[in-house]
Write a protein that binds this DNA or RNA. Structure first.
Lengths: 129, 129, 129, 129
DNA sequence: GTGGTCTAGACCACC
DNA sequence: GTGGTCTAGACCACG
C-alpha cells in the first residue's frame, strides 16, 4: 500500500490519509476513475478504525477528489489529478514553514540549522520502506 | 516576549510553550536563576488560557527545567541550560524527520523537494518578527 | 417505461420502484393480470441493479400487489387495483406532510411558502418527460 | 429548542440538523457571533448521539456557517446569515420539487393533487408544537 | 462485497 | 465545561 501513517506525526490520522491520498493522486499512483481501496480494506491495512478511514474519504469527497460509485466504492474524480498536483506542493510547503518557523525560534546558529535540515532530509530520502 | 505560538502548528499549544521555553534556555535568553514570567502574565502576552501556561510550566518542572521559588514564582533551575542545549537539537531533528518523512511520500522529485526545503528554510530565517 | 427513479430523492431506490409501481396500477397503466417487466429488463431500463428490482418486487408481492405466474413472471394481482388506489393518495400525503413539516420550521412567511409551493407544483405538473 | 428531528423524514438526522440550523440562522433565531448549543447539550435535547450532532456541526463548519471558538464552543460565523438566507429557500424548493415530481408520476388528477397539497400545507402550517 | 449512517464510549487539548 | 479525534460495532441500501 502507498500510505503510511504515523500516530505521533502531530497530524490527525484521518488528515494523514487525506494528504497522502492527494499525494498519490498527484503522483499518478492513482488515476482518475480508479477505485480507491475500500474503507474496510484500507482500515485493515493501516491497522486503524474503518470510521477513521471513512472520515478521511468524506473529506476527500468534500474536496472534490473522490466520488462515490454506488455499490462499487469510491473512485478518483475526473479533475482530481490537476487539483491534487496544484495542492500537493502547497501542503508540504505549509508544513515546512511551520517547522522552520519553530526552528528559527530555537536560536540555533543558522548554519548549524541548515546542516541539520540537510542531514535529516537526505536521511529521509534514503529511507525506502 | 521570546515566545510565539501558532495554533495551526500541529503541536499542542502547551507543547509549543514547553519547547520554546527550552530553546530560550538553551540559547541563554533565560539563564539559571532567572524568574520566568508568571502564569497570568505569559497567558496574557500570548493570548492563551492561563491553564494552558500552567500545564506547560508543570511539564517544565517535571522535566527539571523549572523549579518553584516559594513566594516568588518559577525560576530556571541550575542544570537546565546544559539539559536544554542537549535536548534542543533533538526536538527539532525529530520534527524535521516527521515532516520530511511525509514529504518523501509525496513522490516529489528529490531535487524539487530539496529546492523547496531550501527556499522555505531561507525564507523562515529571514522572517524577523 | 412508466417509472422514473431519482437517486437523490431521499427515498431508497427500491422504495421508489414500489411506490411508482403502485401508482401505475392505481392509474391503470398496469391492469390486474398484466405481466410486469422482468427483473432484468426493468433493471436495465432504469439502470439500477437487478437485485434492487428484485427487492422491490418482493415487497410488492408481500403487499399483495404482485403474484408469481409460474414460468411466466410476475403479474398484477386481482385485488391490486383497488388496494393501490386506496393507498396511492396516502403515500403522497405522507410525504407531503413530511416536507411541509420541515418547511414550517424554516419560518418562511406562510404566504411566501404558499407561493413557493404553488410555483413548484405547477412547474412539476408542466414537466412532461 | 428550535430544532425538531424526525427519524422517518427520509433525510439523515445529521442532515436535518444542518438544514434546520441554516433555517434558524436565516430566520435570525441565531445571529452571527451567537454560540450554538454544545454538541452534548443538543444531543441530549434531541435524544440523538453526540457524534451525530458533531457530524452536523462539521458539515456546517465546512459550509462556512459555524466556526470554532477554542474551548468555548461553536459560533455562528460572520457571513452566515446572508449565506443561509440565500440557501434556505433553495433547500426547501429542491425538496418540494422532488416530492412533486413523484406526485406527478402518480397520475392523480392535477386538480385533486392541488387540493391535496393545499390541504396538507395548511394543516402543517396550523401545527404549532 | 460496497459506502452511509448511527450509536456508544473513550482520551485529549483547551477554557 | 468545550470541541476534536479515535475506536468499536451496528444496521441499511445497493451491487
Amino acid at each position: 500500500m502507498f500510505l503510511r501513517i504515523d500516530p505521533d506525526n502531530g497530524l490527525a490520522i484521518y488528515d494523514q490519509v487525506v494528504r497522502q491520498m492527494k499525494f498519490a493522486i498527484a503522483g499518478e499512483a492513482l488515476k482518475p476513475g480508479d477505485l480507491v481501496p475500500s474503507v474496510r480494506e484500507l482500515a485493515r491495512d493501516l491497522a486503524i478504525n474503518p470510521n477513521t478511514v471513512s472520515r478521511a474519504y468524506l473529506q476527500l469527497q468534500h474536496d472534490g477528489v473522490l466520488e462515490t460509485v454506488r455499490g462499487l466504492g469510491l473512485s478518483v474524480s475526473a479533475g482530481a489529478a490537476k487539483r491534487c498536483r496544484a495542492e500537493g506542493g502547497k501542503l508540504i510547503r505549509e508544513r515546512l514553514a511551520q517547522v522552520f518557523d519553530e526552528a528559527r525560534l530555537s536560536h540555533l546558529d543558522p548554519d548549524d540549522l541548515r546542516k541539520m535540515v540537510s542531514t535529516e532530509l537526505e536521511s529521509a530520502l534514503k529511507r525506502k520502506d
